[in-house]
Design a protein around this nucleic acid. Structure first.
Length: 297
DNA sequence: AAACGGTTCAACCGCACTTTG
DNA sequence: ACAAAGTGCGGTTGAACCGTT
């Protein structure tokens, strides 16, 4: 279906960064009118020389009062990684699970921080698979096996959910719940599935795996592996992990997550590195313990 | 102090989908 | 049923910023 662009280079329309005056006009207009009728007509009514699309973007990504600004917490970053493993580049769906964060913000976080960090850890950021014979970071055998195993768990759960989604969507399309065929409902429903039977069965099925892994993670390990963005010496993003078996997620801490450009501790023995990388990988790729899928709610 | 290169992030672009008449 | 309008979304861009030389 053909579609004319919303603001097709209309003459006189301003582009580029918003001024504080424009922000004020937009905020005041939306406050005064309790939202808006249509974005397209908004700039005209508000007296802005912007296209409606630009106004919408400015409002949803920046001016909305419920936006949480400031750096992402380590918990939020973990959540983004976990959700990305399930949802892929569905930024809006991911954002819907992080109150106060926008899809744009999450996309930027992913592209500028998290993607690099995963690469550094030997994980393909798109597939969440370990990077085979990575030139970025030659991961150890044990890294590889943990990563592969957990990737497989996520992947099989994801496929199962998608199959279920596809099946149920076709049911809805038969006339029962048409609204669920929409894009947004689609992704929301995807998440709901994770919280329901499929997620449940997957989580239950995984239990024994957890127990198997317990022995492996029981040891206390710590790591300080830091460096710049994956140079040839494998000096990668800063990760610091101190963990025991119970609720490993709570003990996971990324230091200096804002930047990879910090010193690399060469004093770490290779064993330390390997053990702690395993743990870090596990933390990144693991489903939360105790069947806690609350991060999807 | 200036030049340079890398990083970040707000904003834009274009496509796809839904809604409306 | 169809076409146009409206909206949402993901990818990309480029100016500003920051650290290094």
């Amino acid at each position: 279906m053909g579609r004319t662009p919303c603001c097709d280079n209309k003459m006189g329309l301003k582009k580029g960064p918003w001024t504080s005056e424009e922000d004020e006009v937009l905020v005041n207009f939306i406050k005064k009118n309790g939202g808006h009728g249509s974005w397209r007509s908004l700039p005209k009514l508000a007296g802005l020389l912007r296209c409606g699309k630009s106004c919408r973007l400015r409002w949803t990504n920046y001016l909305r009062p419920d936006i949480k600004r400031g750096p992402f917490t380590p918990e939020e970053e973990k959540l983004v990684i976990q959700l990305h493993a399930i949802l892929g580049n569905r930024w809006a769906s991911i954002a819907s699970q992080l109150p106060g964060r926008t899809d744009n913000e999450i996309k930027n976080l992913w592209n500028t921080h998290l993607k690099k960090r995963l690469i550094c850890m030997g994980i393909d950021p798109q597939t969440h698979e370990p990077i085979a014979s990575s030139h970025y970071f030659p991961i150890s055998k044990s890294n590889s096996s943990i990563a592969t195993r957990h990737m497989a768990q996520w992947e099989s759960a994801r496929l199962e959910a998608e199959a279920r989604l596809s099946k149920d969507t076709s049911l809805f399309n038969n006339g029962n719940i048409p609204s669920l065929a929409s894009n947004k409902a689609d992704s929301d429903y995807f998440l709901k599935i994770w919280n329901s039977e499929v997620g449940q069965s997957f989580r239950t099925g995984r239990k024994s795996d957890d127990e198997d892994d317990d022995d492996k993670t029981k040891c206390q390990s710590s790591m300080s592996q830091e460096g710049s963005s994956c140079n040839n010496n494998n000096k990668c993003g800063s990760v610091s992990v101190t963990t025991t078996t119970s609720n490993v997620m709570e003990d996971f801490e990324w230091r200096n997550y804002k930047s990879f450009d910090v010193g690399y501790d060469d004093s770490s023995s290779s064993n330390d590195l390997e053990d702690s990388s395993d743990t870090a990988l596990q933390l990144l790729l693991d489903f939360p313990s105790n069947n806690d899928m609350s991060f999807l709610e």
